[in-house]
Design a protein around this nucleic acid. Structure first.
Lengths: 150, 150
DNA sequence: TTGCTCCTCACGTCACGTGAGGTGGC
DNA sequence: TTGCTCCTCACGTCACGTGAGGTGGC
């Protein structure tokens, strides 16, 4: 018990990749493109060091990319808007914000979320269509199988 | 009225691409990989000629690729299975197939469809998760906006 | 003849994969 | 010292995009 094994609140790139379901190379690539901030610290001045917050951010990036089929360029726009929204939240928390400004911040956030939600809705619709067709074909097979049993 | 303008049951690559929502280059690439059959005929011996059935097939390919996120290698497997199923349907139609064989054909088709359906289900679940999170955040914004009005 | 779409190379690009060769802590 | 994970180039790959130069029918 020389070093109290603290729960790994600090991660290196391999651990982050595993938790988020991707590879170190992808993380470096996203950093290169500016999608991920260049790992706040580097332990022993060399290795990138990440936190739990980075896991969440990377997971969210991968979800938007995979589920919505966004290119990294499109993702960059979404994330920039998301970060701007984060900055506004900071402003919000300081408290000394007039009601007019508060309303602006909220409606902007609402627009952003509505944009993402409409993308999700379009995907869900198409997936639903595909599922209905497959299910229908599947039902016909079951029918034929039942006929064989009579 | 020299040539009776028949409804375009015969398409060239540009028209096929437009109908299926893709590009000629993609169609040529899929042909090169063997995902699409090398256009039955070539009019004047040069241009690829397609039919309505090709539109349907290409649309299906693009749907599976985009909605399920399959690589072209994975798609090839799916399509080969689909084509094999088509061959079995031919066998089926000839009629002189014993009941045991009929059952085999049907269960094989059922397995194939179930595989695709489980992929669709997984995607739908993840999309639903994302939608719930976004909707929840959206609801919080609406609440805050309502508070501003009191 | 001029436009239009098609053709075949063939190089470019996006989003990473995959070694090559080297450093740093148990 | 040996393993392990990390590092930075840098070339490879997958799924196309994008001209370059040429042919064929209204």
């Amino acid at each position: 018990m020389t070093s109290t094994t603290t729960p790994p609140t600090e991660l290196r790139i391999g651990a982050l990749a595993e938790r988020a379901g991707t590879t170190p190379r992808t993380i470096r690539y996203y950093e290169e493109l500016g999608l991920l901030p260049p790992a706040a610290e580097r332990d022993s001045g060399r290795h990138r060091v990440y936190s739990g917050a980075d896991v969440a951010r990377l997971e969210q990036i991968l979800r938007l990319k995979d589920l919505l089929g966004l290119t990294l360029d499109e993702l960059r726009d979404v994330l920039e808007a998301e970060d701007a929204r984060g900055a506004l939240r900071e402003e919000w928390r300081r408290g000394d914000v007039p009601a007019v400004r508060r309303r602006e911040i909220l409606t902007e956030a609402a627009r952003h979320l509505d944009g993402q939600l409409s993308l999700v809705a379009r995907r869900r619709e198409k997936l639903g269509e595909l599922e209905r067709e497959l299910t229908e074909r599947r039902a016909m097979i079951s029918e034929r199988l039942a006929e064989l049993d009579t």
